[in-house]
């Protein structure tokens, strides 16, 4: 079976037979892996401190809104699907479809930020902030740092949306698009773990 990826790779190499090309640059994979290692330390710190003070963490978790967190998980999973579709259509040099999916991805990312804003302002008006206790310190620092990743991801996507106007530009940028997609999936993947750890695990 010849997947669409191979077809894209063949076109990219000027039709001289199928040259197998890896998705995204190796450097992006390195960045993603290193970043995931920093987040692994976050998870470890959270589990460690939860064990030290289970009562405080249970109480803090009860004040979080699982509905809003769950909504954000769903939004981010869907945006990740759109990003995968955008990468896929970029490989087929289908610029119209590509642009539509990038816009959808960005739309989902913006919804994520809006929900995050509602959630944070809820917590602030309830009198909780980053200095309240260890649970809120971890909650605000980890989700805030994750939100920073979302904002950077949105700016990469915006750059890839506005700088691609012709099919030639799309061909030039295919690897950059794969890289941005990879980064976006990492943001999604880390949120999946953060959501389970912060909101769900009793």
């Amino acid at each position: 079976m010849m997947s669409a990826m191979d077809i894209g790779a063949e076109k990219a190499s000027g039709g001289e037979g199928i040259t197998y090309r890896y998705p995204a640059e190796l450097g992006v994979w390195l960045f993603v892996f290193a970043d995931m290692c920093i987040f692994a330390m976050y998870f470890a710190v959270f589990v460690w401190e939860k064990n030290l003070n289970p009562a405080m963490f249970t109480e803090g978790q009860a004040s979080l809104s699982t509905q809003l967190g769950g909504l954000n998980t769903v939004v981010l999973l869907i945006s990740s699907y759109f990003a995968a579709k955008a990468v896929h259509s970029a490989r087929l040099f289908n610029i119209e479809v590509y642009k539509r999916f990038i816009k959808l991805t960005m739309f989902c990312g913006l919804i994520f930020l809006c929900v995050k804003f509602v959630e944070y302002s809820d917590k602030f008006s309830a009198g909780f902030d980053i200095a309240t206790n260890a649970f809120y310190r971890n909650y605000f620092a980890f989700t805030g740092f994750h939100m920073l990743h979302v904002i950077f991801g949105l700016s990469f996507l915006a750059w890839l949306l506005f700088s691609v106007k012709t099919v030639e530009q799309l061909k030039e940028k295919t690897q950059a698009i794969e890289g941005a997609g990879l980064y976006w999936h990492m943001v999604d993947l880390l949120w999946v773990v953060l959501f389970s750890l912060l909101y769900l695990v009793p």
Partner: peptide
């Protein structure tokens, strides 16, 4: 729940991240 989360993570890594 953690096990399910890491199952999801692997799904994302294998199918979305390729």
């Amino acid at each position: 729940i953690l096990l399910l989360a890491f199952f999801k993570v692997r799904l994302i890594a294998i199918h979305f991240m390729e």
